[in-house]
């Protein structure tokens, strides 16, 4: 398929996944800030930190980290290219550019998501950015992302277009899971197991739909190290780094071309480390260092995918 088409599909998927993860993160942060009002500023600072938006936020709203402003900035602000609404817009624009390549159901889903997201964002922005309208909005964004994914799997031919959409989805998801884990783990001392900490780890799990999975897998109290293990190494946990990299590695095999050998090798190395890795070894290195290296690896892989497939020089 056309390289430019693959590029649009890949970014369409990345932005859709990014919007979903942002909705997850903000939803959990909002709920936590309601439960533990005292430290709410810290939660919002962390949310900005995960997404790397602290500097941009302060440039617009000043030094004070205030819930309403953070939400406004991260949900409805189109000047912020990483906001929820901006991500949905970018997904829609990428889809629009290749609307003939995806099925009409996929296009209709992504286009409707944008049209409705814009309409409800306008309403939200007029209010105080709080309350059940806000949480409903996050629920809705997650639901629309499920719908996009479902309509993609359910209606598209499993050809290259499909593969590049999936590649974007899993690369973005790996990045987002690593970020959520990194900031929370950094912020929460693993030894501390007060009840506050319990809620916070529980919230982290919920933000990646892993709370019930954790219970099912470990049948035990929540400990930070197990949370890390679940989100990094579990093959069967759909948002874990292992599960994402397994998909990325496999998809790169499907779309391989004459110049992609090195990219496949690098993806294969990354996948093998997760597949055969042990949580104790990772914690010994230090989780933050490990995740920083992982995020660098994901960024590098993204660049290589662009060069090999999406915007080749000739």
């Amino acid at each position: 398929m056309l390289s430019r088409t693959a590029d649009h599909l890949y970014w369409m998927a990345r932005y859709t996944e990014r919007a979903e993860n942002l909705a997850r993160l903000l939803d959990v942060t909002y709920r936590m800030s309601l439960q533990m009002h005292a430290s709410s500023g810290g939660y919002w600072g962390a949310a900005l930190g995960i997404t790397g938006l602290e500097v941009a936020y302060k440039a617009k709203h000043g030094e004070k980290i205030e819930a309403g402003n953070v939400l406004r900035f991260m949900v409805v602000d189109l000047d912020n290219p990483s906001s929820l609404l901006a991500s949905l817009k970018a997904a829609r624009e990428n889809c629009h550019a290749v609307r003939g390549t995806v099925t009409s159901e996929v296009w209709e889903t992504i286009n409707t998501t944008w049209l409705e997201a814009r309409a409800s964002a306008t309403q939200l922005a007029q209010g105080a950015m709080q309350g059940s309208d806000l949480t409903k909005y996050f629920e809705w964004v997650k639901f629309r992302s499920h719908l996009s994914r479902g309509v993609t799997v359910g209606t598209m031919l499993q050809d290259e277009a499909f593969h590049f959409i999936r590649l974007g989805t899993f690369l973005e998801r790996a990045d987002n899971t690593a970020r959520i884990l990194d900031v929370k783990y950094d912020e929460l001392a693993p030894e501390d197991t007060t009840s506050n900490e319990y809620y916070e780890w529980g919230a982290l799990l919920r933000s990646v739909s892993a709370f019930e999975i954790y219970r099912k897998v470990y049948r035990d109290v929540i400990t930070p190290n197990r949370v890390a293990e679940l989100l990094i190494l579990r093959e069967d946990m759909p948002r874990s780094l292992h599960a994402c990299m397994k998909e990325v590695h496999q998809i790169l095999g499907f779309v391989a071309n004459a110049r992609s050998r090195e990219t496949q090798r690098i993806a294969g190395m990354g996948y093998s480390e997760l597949r055969y890795g042990r949580i104790d070894d990772i914690l010994e290195v230090g989780l933050h260092d490990y995740l920083t290296k992982f995020l660098d690896g994901i960024a590098g892989l993204g660049n290589r995918i662009s060069q090999d497939f999406l915007v080749p020089m000739s």
């Binding site: 056309l2 430019r4 693959a6 071309n257 000739s314």
Partner: peptide, 19 residues
């Protein structure tokens, strides 16, 4: 569906850039 930037001419032939 191609744009001009997706195609190039080489050896008296029009090509499109694909994956």
């Amino acid at each position: 569906l191609v744009e001009g930037q997706d195609m190039f001419v080489d050896d008296e032939t029009v090509f499109m850039r694909t994956t």
